[in-house]
Amino acid sequence: MERFEQLYRDWKKEAKKLTTDLDLLPLEALIEVFERVNVEQEKTDDVRKAVSMLVLEETTTLPPNHQPTPDAVSLFIGYLATKLVKDGANVLELGSGTGTLVHAVLTQLKDATAQAVEVDETMLRLSYAISNLLGKPVSYFHQDALAPLFVEPSDLALVDLPIGYYPNDDMASGYALKRDEGHSYSHFLLIEQAMRHLKPGGHGIFVIPNNLFEQDDEGKLKQWMDREAVVKGVLQLPTTMFKDERYAKSLLMLQKLGEGVKRPKQALLVELPSFTDVRAVANIVKQIDDWFKTT
Rank of each mutant, 00 (worst) to 15 (best):
E2M: 13
E5D: 12
Q6S: 10
Q6F: 05
Y8L: 10
Y8F: 15
Y8S: 10
D10E: 10
K12H: 04
K13C: 06
A15I: 02
K17P: 06
L18D: 01
T19C: 10
D21I: 14
L24W: 05
L25D: 10
P26V: 06
A29D: 00
E35G: 00
R36E: 06
V37K: 00
K43M: 06
K43H: 07
L54R: 00
E58Q: 13
T60Y: 08
N65D: 10
Q67N: 10
P68V: 09
A72E: 11
S74Q: 05
F76Y: 09
A81I: 03
T82V: 04
V85R: 04
A89C: 08
N90M: 12
L92W: 05
S96V: 07
G99M: 07
H103G: 03
A104R: 11
L106N: 03
L109M: 13
L109F: 07
K110R: 13
D111K: 14
T113Y: 02
Q115L: 10
E118I: 05
M123Q: 05
L124H: 09
L126S: 01
A129N: 01
A129E: 03
A129H: 00
N132T: 01
L134W: 02
K136P: 02
S139L: 05
F141C: 08
H142I: 07
H142L: 08
Q143V: 04
A145V: 06
F150P: 02
V151H: 09
E152H: 12
A157T: 05
I163D: 03
Y165P: 00
Y165R: 14
Y165L: 15
M171P: 00
M171H: 01
A172D: 00
L177S: 01
K178N: 07
R179D: 12
Y185V: 03
H187M: 12
H187S: 13
H187E: 13
F188M: 11
L189T: 01
L189R: 02
I191A: 11
E192Y: 00
Q193I: 09
A194W: 02
L198M: 11
G201N: 07
G204S: 03
G204Q: 03
F206I: 03
F213C: 02
Q215R: 09
Q215M: 14
K222V: 14
W224G: 03
M225R: 07
E228I: 04
A229P: 07
Q236D: 13
T239K: 15
T239M: 08
K243Y: 11
K243F: 14
R246V: 05
L252E: 11
L254N: 12
L257K: 15
G258A: 08
E259A: 15
E259S: 14
V261W: 03
Q266G: 07
L268A: 01
E271R: 09
P273N: 09
S274C: 09
D277S: 08
V278H: 15
A280D: 13
A280S: 15
V281E: 10
V285K: 15
K286P: 02
D290N: 14
D290Q: 12
